[in-house]
């Protein structure tokens, strides 16, 4: 029977909640912009949320051991898997930054976190880059990572899938009954990703 580290589980769950909260603030800020709140207020909220997301991402990456003290020796497979994750993070940052800049700056410069129209060329370019980079890095990472790391990621993927299977029809039913707002695919995506990352990080261990 696996012993559960409650403190560690709590920290990771807290990270996931803060992540979703920051993501929620980004979307709320976008809605605020649409409803005519001042540009300065919206921009401040977007920037605060963006900084929060960056800080939490860094803490998460640190928990995964991708960055930090490098005194201890690292195996070739670990180094390779870290390099792939770093590459994926850089590509993600490039897409996110470029996407944010491609939107209408009156929206607070956060096209990534809204459903507002964007230029078709931006959608095609960032979509293609995202698909190619995510598929390539996923395959490379699965080949590079050791069996324990892969098992942890697979547990996270299963939990994420479970979150998707439960959340999507539940939200759809709620929306049809006018109990909740219409489903937003990016919020579902963020929740699934947060569950995936939290379970993966926890299963990976210290």
């Amino acid at each position: 029977m696996t012993k559960i580290d409650h403190t560690r589980a709590l920290k990771i769950a807290l990270c996931a909640i803060l992540y979703l909260l920051a993501f929620g603030i980004m979307i709320a800020s976008q809605n605020g912009a649409l409803e005519g709140y001042g540009d300065g207020t919206v921009l401040a909220a977007v920037l605060t949320a963006a900084v929060t997301i960056v800080v939490i991402t860094f803490l998460w990456i640190k928990a995964l051991g991708i960055v930090g003290p490098q005194e201890e020796p690292v195996s070739q497979s670990t180094q390779k898997s870290r390099n792939v994750l770093l590459f994926a993070a850089i590509i993600g940052g490039v897409i996110g930054f470029g996407f944010a800049l491609s939107g209408d700056l009156r929206d607070g410069g956060a096209a990534l976190f809204s459903n507002n129209p964007i230029a078709p060329i931006a959608a095609i370019a960032f979509g293609a880059l995202f698909v190619l980079a995510s598929i390539w890095s996923s395959i490379r990472w699965h080949r590079a990572a050791d069996e324990h790391e892969r098992a942890a990621a697979n547990s996270g993927a299963y939990a994420g899938m479970l979150a998707y299977v439960v959340l999507t029809p539940l939200w759809w039913l709620g929306a049809r009954a006018s109990l909740v707002p219409p489903q937003d695919p990016m919020i579902v995506f963020a929740i699934v990703l947060a569950v995936y990352a939290a379970v993966w990080t926890y299963q990976r261990g210290d």
Binding site: T2, K3, G65, E72, P73, V74, S75, Q76, S77, T78, S81, D146, E147, H148, E149, A151, R204, G205, D206
Partner: peptide
């Protein structure tokens, strides 16, 4: 050997060695 040193010998992560030692992961 430290966990990290053993991990290098096995070409796995230090976390993998820790998980095996503590019985959280059964190796293939």
């Amino acid at each position: 050997w430290s966990q990290a040193e053993l991990a290098v010998h096995l070409d796995v992560s230090r976390q993998a060695v820790n998980a095996i030692e503590t019985g959280k992961h059964d190796p293939s």
